[in-house]
Design a protein around this nucleic acid. Sequence first.
DNA 1: GTTACGACCTGCGAGC
DNA 2: TGCTCGCAGGTCGTAA
Length: 284
Amino acid sequence: MPELPEVEVVRQGLAEWVTNKKIETVTVLHPRAIRNFPGTKKSFSNQLSGEKILTVNRRGKYMWMELSSGRALVTHLGMSGQVLIQKPNHEPENHLRIRFTFSNYKNEMHFVDQRTFGGMHIDDLVDFSADELVPSSVQHIARDPFDPKFEPDQVVEKLRLKKTEIKRALLDQTLVSGIGNIYADESLWRSKLHWATPTSGISKAKALELIGHATDVMREALAEGGTSFDSLYVDVNGQSGYFERGLSAYGREDEPCHRCGRLIVRDSFMNRSSFRCPRCQRLG
DNA sequence: GTTACGACCTGCGAGC
DNA sequence: TGCTCGCAGGTCGTAA
């Protein structure tokens, strides 16, 4: 599932291949892929045709391409989204949703999404802080740990004011962005915290340790090209990452804890799974 | 204002 | 073999 490291891998690939490329045609093959765009498929295509891609940026799991008109093409991969660079005669993917061609580049850009939780839309760029523009639809997203201006102290301060469970807070993209189910479980395992620990009961030092572990585990994953459980997560060239073998909790139900040997358990949490060591990560 | 929860969506695998 | 059902989970809207 694309979380911060996986989206960053895609962003880096896109920055390499589509910067300074001029969009010629845009074909929308599934309406849900542009559900956050207020216009029609045709107007989406018309608004993008002729635009030059200047930069490829990211905040948390949101990615956007800054366009020559001053607007942005915003992309969220959702659960199964991929942005692929393909040769012009490439067989269309089963779940190809949007196809882009360029006037000064022979290859195509394909937005592929099996579960259609992801999508693209066009947005205005607005001031976020000094010399920093973000799409208006991304304004509410907090800085992620890869952001040079990310301040762990501020996150910890806000986190400790919340009245909720620690994992729920980690997944709150308005508090700290980029963390999804996989890296939340890994950070909690490294910090020896149960997912249901109340945020109000966590010391400042422990909360800082947790944010530090979240940052570390996502940096390690980025260095390995991200985490892949299946063919749903790949980079722009269709290659999978290798961090799955670096995981200590997520997806390891009934396997021994790397620290104490007890078998990892799976709990149901927020209608999804949460993996933890029953000895290292006890509640209270 | 804050928190909790259901809905959205599709392919895959387990179970019958 | 073929069918049904549960599961995967990021985000948003709505209810409390």
